[in-house]
Design a protein around this nucleic acid. Sequence first.
DNA 1: TGTTGACTTAAAGTGGACTTTAAGTTGTAA
DNA 2: TTACAACTTAAAGTCCACTTTAAGTCAACA
Lengths: 144, 144
Amino acid sequence: MATATTPRYSIGAFAQAVGLTAPTLRYYENEGLIEPHRLANGRRYYEETDVNWVKFLLHLKGTGMSISELKQYVEWRAAGDSTIPQRLELLKKVKADFLVQFNEVQHHLQILNDKINWYEEKEAGVTQDHEDFATYLQRFGHRE
Amino acid sequence: MATATTPRYSIGAFAQAVGLTAPTLRYYENEGLIEPHRLANGRRYYEETDVNWVKFLLHLKGTGMSISELKQYVEWRAAGDSTIPQRLELLKKVKADFLVQFNEVQHHLQILNDKINWYEEKEAGVTQDHEDFATYLQRFGHRE
DNA sequence: TGTTGACTTAAAGTGGACTTTAAGTTGTAA
DNA sequence: TTACAACTTAAAGTCCACTTTAAGTCAACA
């Protein structure tokens, strides 16, 4: 009977695979987010499941979670299924914060778009008097 | 004939009006983003148009522009209409970068949502074997 | 055998955007 | 007239998330 062996990544190869640098991986490890295996000579190695794990962490990070929040999440995960309520609560809080930011940022984009359009109209139009940006915004119902 | 006077804001009142702190306003001034007027005794004052200006800067900042990019924009603006092409180019670049980030962040949210749903199903369902997150994601066509 | 290149560690450094401190001035209200 | 809040400055400090440095170990290849 054959034993299926999962490929082992050195820290460099793993960094490539997840889109980080080796120093960043060591930093994350220090912060308690990852716990790689070690070869007999002390070198780290990572397995396929670690790729998914880090990619998932990066998604959470991308929604605004800080390193310390990620650490808290990781600790709860290591503590087992009894911490699922805490994890769920944390993720819901992260989501709520995210949605607030998301709306704000969409409004910022709106104003940016309006300003670009205003410049383009100004460039295209005659050199003479052009309504100012505030007035322009009002025409679209965009405040401030 | 009456002379219309615009109200003058002290730095504290102005900070309130734009949602920043007085030290932050001094910092922005130092960085070249704002140039308030001064009373005879050396104290800063701001006018109504400055409120709009700062709010607009905060919108740009909210789309991802750094202080130094804002400074560049402000300098071009002070230089007059001949710099409109540069300003337009900068804003378009900011918008392009923003849209890239925006798409990424939406994907991060998708994964966060999926994870929340996965936990909720797990909590609701029977205690026994529950499909893992990777498999769960596949059912929705959400990768990684 | 010796020279790469990839790894190991702990500690110090960086960048951005503020925030805080310290020491002093000014205007108003009790 | 004295207390207090709000202002002034320059400089130092903070926080976060890395990044860089320094000094050393190790495996493989010419």
